[in-house]
Design a protein around this nucleic acid. Structure first.
Lengths: 226, 226
DNA sequence: CCTGAATTGTAAGCTCCCTTACAGCCGTAA
DNA sequence: TTACGGCTGTAAGGGAGCTTACAATTCAGG
């Protein structure tokens, strides 16, 4: 076994979605993978690219985004080690409709669509896990779509913080602290608003005590259920 | 073979996603299904329901929607015979987040989630076809999410008409005619706007010739590429 | 420690489109 | 035929949040 293959294997072992695979399946998957280092702010693919590849995050963080003609940005997902992205090539996406950018120096693995498909056909369990993954993303974006139509910026911001707390939260005396740092710009990209409006609403939320800041970390205070 | 089973089989034969199945697989699937008649405006499930079932449209048309507290509605999909819905129970949706309503008297088939999952595990080809289905829905809603953030009502309405023409279009002398009738209310539910605004923008589009009406059908005129 | 870049804070003005309010119209059921 | 419910047309008014503009602050790198 080559060093690279061993390295892929090692990374796979820790990746979500691959946990259920047998050793031989993992070896097979590892042999399909090539790995790629991406520098902070480097793109993996851009909207319009013809790129029939799926990726797995090994180290670092990646975001998937959409850009408007006049340079505005929407963030669709923030991806952590173990997450799969580029999966829509499976659904017949010929040109990428989304871009993927590294938020920090990252290591990712690439698998050709055809290899990935072969693998899906051979491992029903793995196939089902991928179906669930895409289904979860569908649920999430449907909820965001609903929010942007029915809710104002303030309440979208609050629900974003609850989502972030579920993903990055850590109990602390005051409540749940969100461990990652996000600029107002990034927050606004996540809720479909603007940087200025987020700054404004955020300061109102601080005043009303719905959000506490500790340095530059956000804390969701525990609801008093007395 | 019972009459019901024979009937299910007959319906399955014509359903998208099931075309690739072998006869024995189709028989097995048919044996899992129960069928249900729904009257126009009857609901199949509502947001909040605990309902671990997948459905296949056999006859009629179904829409999936989301409702706000104050009664506003978003239409997510309009489903035709052969379409599957309720699929997000596969992704761990414990309570339905969406509602499903019949747009006309319809016949649908129901399959329990556990049966459906068994089936997925046994037929990799079918599993992959379901993955593609969910992936397509994800792509579609991501595009709508982008549109609602970047585009105004006018251009959302135009792209809706292009989508509708792809799905329901029919060539005619003036261009592509959209064969189904949708009220302004329904159009606004599809683009996240209001009935009044749609009426207004639509009348502007008619004046500018971007949309033609024939009776109550909409026609997208062919672009002059001279 | 210094400097430039990135981030945050604040505010005035404006615009899109939602809300509210009616009036006319069309189709269909009685 | 009438009457009623649903659909369409139109218009005034208002408001949430986007734009634009600029200043203050923080941060990272030299």
């Amino acid at each position: 076994m080559t060093d690279i293959k061993a390295c892929n294997l090692w990374h796979l072992a820790s990746a979500r979605h691959f946990a259920e695979l047998s050793e031989s399946e993992k070896e097979m998957m590892a042999s399909f993978m090539t790995h790629i280092n991406v520098k902070k702010s480097g793109y993996i693919y851009n909207a319009g690219d013809r790129d029939e590849t799926l990726y797995i995050v090994m180290e670092g963080r990646i975001k998937t985004t959409r850009l408007s003609e006049d340079g505005k940005e929407i963030t669709l997902e923030i991806l952590e080690p173990g997450d799969i992205f580029g999966e829509l090539t499976l659904a017949g996406e010929e040109e990428r409709e989304t871009s993927a950018v590294a938020l920090e120096d990252s290591l990712i693995c690439a698998v050709k669509r055809s290899d990935f498909e072969d693998f899906l056909h051979q491992s029903p369990l793995f196939a089902f896990s991928v179906t669930k993954l895409i289904g979860l993303r569908l649920r999430k974006i449907e909820n965001r779509y609903e929010n942007i139509i029915f809710k104002d910026v303030r309440s979208r911001l609050v629900s974003l913080f609850y989502d972030l707390a579920d993903k990055y939260g850590e109990e602390c005396p005051e409540g749940r602290k969100i461990k990652i740092r996000l600029s107002h710009q990034e927050l606004s990209n996540l809720i479909g608003s603007t940087r200025e409006t987020v700054t404004l609403e955020l300061s109102k939320l601080k005043k009303s005590g719905e959000i506490i800041t500790d340095g530059r970390a956000f804390i969701l205070p525990q609801k008093k259920t007395a």
